[in-house]
Design a protein around this nucleic acid. Structure first.
Length: 209
DNA sequence: ACATTAAGTGATT
DNA sequence: AATCACTTAATGT
């Protein structure tokens, strides 16, 4: 599907034309880091295909999942970072093979005044993400780890479009900034409640999770 | 058969 | 809920 077709309901025709003219099509293979902490944001990614995983990393190298960017979305953090060329606070990894349009940040300002649909798109993605982050903070602050784990598994399942999760308990623990033993115990509990099936490096999600 | 890595468990803080 | 120390199970060589 062409770019124009994909976004014709969102952006005005003039803008679509300019996107076609000025944006580069980029394809990144699974697992590759697109943007690391400290790097300067040079482009705005407009996701066409695949999923980006956005994480924070603390001093000791532990990762905490912030959110996923799905197709037809962009990353709110890049908007906020790029305006004034701040280095990135976050890390973006291609969760699957990813295809996106790279829009040079130099024309961001121009588009914001020129195209109302671009402005509302930017505002909308920032607002959506902000709400989601508030939600995440709620989860961290008030929700118990077991609920967070269920949440995590569901998100993962949605991201990979499969109920079979290919992760070790340790990998999950790292992404949730927890420890392997705790995750193992919680998963065991979920298995006893017939919510999941556990295998080595694999977790099968059952319907009534 | 052996080594390595993932997962399970009890005790301690 | 995290960490430690240890056991058990699965997997690769």
């Amino acid at each position: 599907m062409s770019v124009v077709e994909k976004f014709k309901n969102i952006f005005e025709p003039d803008l679509l034309e300019e996107i076609e003219a000025k944006a580069n099509n980029v394809i990144v293979e699974e697992g590759k880091t697109i943007l690391d902490i400290g790097q300067t944001v040079r482009i705005i990614p407009l996701l066409l295909k695949g999923i980006l995983k956005i994480t924070r990393v603390d001093e000791s190298g532990k990762e905490l999942l912030l959110y996923y960017v799905h197709a037809n979305e962009s990353c709110a953090m890049t908007f906020t970072c790029c305006m004034q060329q701040y280095p990135s606070e976050i890390k973006a990894v291609a969760e699957t093979e990813v295809e996106f349009l790279a829009i040079p940040i130099s024309i961001m300002d121009e588009w914001l005044v020129k195209y109302p649909t671009w402005k509302s798109f930017v505002m909308r993605t920032i607002r959506n993400r902000f709400n989601e982050l508030l939600n995440t903070i709620d989860l961290l602050a008030f929700q118990k780890l077991d609920e967070r784990l269920i949440n995590y598994l569901k998100e993962k399942s949605k991201a990979t479009n499969s109920t079979l999760i290919n992760l070790s308990h340790e990998e999950i623990a790292n992404e949730m900034a927890s420890s392997r033993e705790v995750i193992s115990r919680l998963l065991k509990k979920l298995e006893n409640d017939n919510k999941v099936l556990l295998y080595r490096n694999q977790i099968k999600l059952l319907k009534d999770l």
